[in-house]
Amino acid sequence: MFSTFLCILRRDITLAMRRRTDILTTLFFFVIVASLFPLGVGSEKEVLRFLGPGVVWVAALLASMLALERLFASDFADGTLEQMLLTPQPLSVLVLGKICAHWLLTGLPLVLIAPLIGLQYGLEGTQLLVMVMALLVGTPVLSLVGSIGAALTLGLRGGGILLSLLVLPLYIPVLVYGSGAVTVSAIDLADVQPFMALLGAFLILALAFSPLATAAALRISVE
C-alpha cells in the first residue's frame, strides 16, 4: 500500500517537474496578493505589523485554493483518473499520494517563501519562525480539505469559482488559529502552544478523513 502511495507521489512530482511554470504561478500569486495589501492600506509600520499574520494566511488560503483546480484536472482530461478508479488499490491511498505531491509542489514553496513576506510586514524573528511552523502544519490541511471540493467540481464549467465557494468556508478554522498563532507569538511565545496543538489536531483529522471523502467524491464525479 505504501509503495502505491510512493509510486503516485513520484509520478506526480515528475510530471510537475516537466512543467515548472505551474508551480511558480501559484507562488507568485501568493507573493503578489501579499504585496498588494500595503499598497491598499498604506505602508505604516504599525498597521502592517498588525495585519501581517492575517494577510499572509489569507493569501496562502487563496493561493492554495487556486492551485487545487489542477489537482485532478489533467488526470481527468487524459483519462488517467478513470484508470485509477479501476485499479484494485484503495482509491483513498492514491488520492492521498496525489494530495501529498500537490502539497509538496504548491504548499511547501509557499511555506518557504512566507518569511520573506513576513519581513515585508515587519514581523520579527520568533514571529517569522512561528509563522513558518504554523504554515507548515496548516497548509497540508488546506490541500486535504480542498481536495474534496476539487473532486466534486471536476470538469464543471466555472469550476474554479464554485470551488472557492465550497472550500473557503471550510478553511476558516485553519485561518483563525494559523494567524492567531502568529499574532500571539508577538506577545508571549508560550501562548502559541495550544494554537499549534489545534492545527496539529486538524491535520490529523484531515489526514484521516479527507482522502476517504475525496475518493467518494471522485467516484461520484467520474462514474
Binding site: 476558516i172 483563525v176 488559529y177
Partner: peptide
C-alpha cells in the same frame, strides 16, 4: 449530498473556532 455532509462535519469546528 457529499458536500452537505462534509459541511456538517466541519460546522462544529468552524463555529468553535469563531
Amino acid at each position: 449530498a457529499l458536500i452537505a455532509i462534509v459541511g456538517l462535519v466541519c460546522v462544529p469546528i468552524i463555529f468553535w473556532s469563531i
